[in-house]
Every structure is written in C-alpha cells, then in structure tokens.
Simulated assay, not measured.
Amino acid sequence: MTNTHPYSTLTPERVMDAIEALGFFCDARIFPLNSYENRVYQVGIEDEQPIIAKFYRPGRWSAESIREEHAFLLELAANDVPVVAPLQFEGETLFFADPFWFALFPRRGGHAPELASFDDLELIGRWLGRLHQTGSAKAFKHRPKFRGVADLDQAAEAVLSSGLMPNDYREVYQSLHRDLSALVKDRYSPDQFRTLRLHGDMHSGNLLLRDEQLYLVDFDDCMQGPAMQDIWMLLSGQRDEQLAQLDAIREGYEMFRPFPRQELSGIEVLRTVRVMKHAAWLCQRWEDPAFPAAFPWFESHRFWSEHILTLREQQAALISEPLYLPG
C-alpha cells in the first residue's frame, strides 16, 4: 500500500535543503529523534555544533499559534527561565518548506530528573513558579485553552467516530462519557480558576537535567489553562506520597508566586480530560504510519478494556476527597 501521508515526503534531502536555505551547511548526519506528533531531527552542521530541526505536522497548528509558542519561549528565555528557545534569523523563528512549517533549535542534552527525589521536585517547583510568573503576564490569543467538559466531549466524539473502538465497548464507553461529563461539569467551570500561559504537557520526559541545570523542553502543547495543569502530572503513588510530592513542589514554587492550593480540587478533572484526550489523539493520528507501528496494541480488546477500567477509576476519583495542602 502506498504511503500518502505528508511525512512520507520528508526525506533527508528535503530536510537538508530546508536547513541549508537558511545559510547552514549540513554534513549529511541526520538522526531522527523520538517524536510522534511532529518530526524532529538532530542535524550535523559542518564545523559547528549539530542543531535540532522540528517539522510541524501539517494542519495541526496555524502559523500564528506556532509563532505564539516561539514568542513565549523567547520571553521565558529573556526572563532566565531554562527553556530551549528557537533560533532566530533576521527576527524570524518559523519557516516554510511546503507543506511543512519548521523551526531550528540549539541542541541540549540531559536526562530526566528523579521525580522520587524531593530535591529534584523542589527544583522543578522553583522553575515552574518562574515559568508561571512569566506566563501570567498576558494571555495567549491563538493557542488552545483548557475547556473542561467541552474538551471531554470533543475527545469522546473523536473516539466514537473513528471506527477504531471495538463495538463491544461502545455502549459502556458512551455511558461512562455521560457520567464523566456530568461530574466534570459539576466540578469545573472555565471561569472557576484564573488561567495563564502554560507548558501544558509537563511530564518527566519533557524535563532535562544536566550538571544540576534543569531545562523545560517541548512546548508543542503550550496552552492557556489553570496552573495545576503543569503540576499534577509530576505526582505519582498513593495519596500520602502525592501530598509529600506536592509539598516539595510547593516549597520551590512559592519562592516566586503563591502555590495554587485552590486548584487541587481540579486535579482529577485535569487527569480525566487527559486520559480521554490521549485515546482520541491516537484515533486522530491512526492514518500516520508511524502510529500503528509505535502503538500496535491500540486496536486490541485488551487496550480498550483497560481504557474503560481507567475511566471507571476516574469516575470514582472525581467523587472522592481531593488532595489538600494546609496553608
């Protein structure tokens, strides 16, 4: 079967042509990096350090929304927040190689921090406080905004319309979606918490630690939302473990701004939306050959059975007592 996805045309030659059009001389060493949504490469440059080239998925973001992401990164870097900002050429950071928008970044190495370490969590909290302090200065105009139940409903529509869910699970999924929507609507309204510019996908894979320097990377999902969106994904384990982790993050965060205790009640709403959006994301990307190759279990009964179980667990979590930090 012929691969007609746009990424099938992104050959090493096209990658080098796009980069050399900006004045670089590639040495033909091109290494694909781990990225499913976009295509990201480390590209060797003659007599210079390699650079990172990011080719955005066609049709996902507008040029305005990508430029807004880049402007946020440059603003953070100017405020000494450790991010990897795009390289600028005559003031521009975004370029076009039909049909791809692309950007270049300096290379940064490192490893994921130990989220079991309270010292690392305190450091992460410190940089999140700095990030959110900058993020609160103004609002995004073109990036997505967290919408609570509207995000949940959109995710369910994407799953149910994809044809990828086995028929055995459709009825129970629809029932769970109705129940979860009612719970989320009851526990979160778009105007309930102040929103700010966020990273949006703050898991350990998007944190790089090297020589005690922590970098916050991959702002591809940056968004307007509650501060807790960048905090809850760092938590794991039982309730007492999560409270201890939150306290370590809070200690660093409060060096720069008040910790959003009032948003702790929204953690399970944020988690529920992410669980449903992740399944929807896989459904929406299934025509990209990279996805069936990377997630071969997605069409199996086992995945959907476990997904239904996870949604039931979220249903229980939404009616349980939320995490609480005194103060």
Rank of each mutant, 00 (worst) to 15 (best):
M1C: 03
M1P: 05
T2Y: 05
P6N: 04
T11E: 06
E13V: 10
A18S: 14
F24Y: 15
F25V: 15
D27V: 07
R29S: 15
N34Q: 09
N34F: 04
S35R: 11
Y36N: 11
R39V: 13
Y41L: 08
I45H: 12
E46G: 00
E48G: 01
A53R: 03
F55I: 10
Y56K: 04
R57K: 13
R57M: 11
P58K: 04
W61E: 08
E64S: 12
F72P: 10
L73Q: 10
L76R: 04
N79M: 03
D80E: 15
D80Y: 04
V81L: 08
V81P: 09
V83M: 08
A85M: 10
E90S: 13
E90R: 09
G91P: 03
T93E: 05
A97H: 10
A97G: 04
P99H: 06
P99Q: 04
P99S: 09
F100S: 13
F105K: 03
P106D: 07
P106E: 07
P106S: 07
S117K: 02
D120R: 00
E122P: 00
T134D: 09
A139W: 00
F140W: 08
K141R: 13
D153Y: 00
Q154K: 13
Q154N: 15
E157K: 12
E157V: 13
L164V: 02
L164Y: 10
M165V: 13
D168Q: 11
R170T: 15
V172C: 11
Q174C: 13
S175T: 14
D179R: 06
S181D: 05
L183M: 12
K185G: 15
Y188R: 09
P190Y: 04
P190N: 12
Q192T: 11
Q192K: 14
Q192E: 13
F193R: 03
R194C: 05
R194M: 09
T195S: 13
D201C: 03
D201E: 11
G205C: 07
R210L: 09
R210P: 00
D211P: 01
E212S: 15
E212T: 14
Q213Y: 01
L214A: 09
L214N: 08
Y215P: 00
V217K: 01
D221I: 07
G225V: 05
P226S: 05
A227T: 03
M228N: 04
D230N: 05
W232D: 02
S236A: 14
S236G: 11
D240F: 02
L246R: 02
L246Y: 07
E254F: 02
M255Q: 15
R257F: 02
E263F: 01
G266Y: 00
L270E: 03
R271D: 15
K277V: 07
H278M: 12
C283K: 02
R285C: 03
D288W: 08
D288P: 05
P292Y: 08
P292Q: 05
P292W: 04
E299N: 10
S300W: 00
I308H: 04
I308V: 10
E313M: 12
Q314A: 00
Q314C: 14
Q315M: 13
S320C: 06
S320N: 14
E321H: 07
L325I: 14
G327N: 04
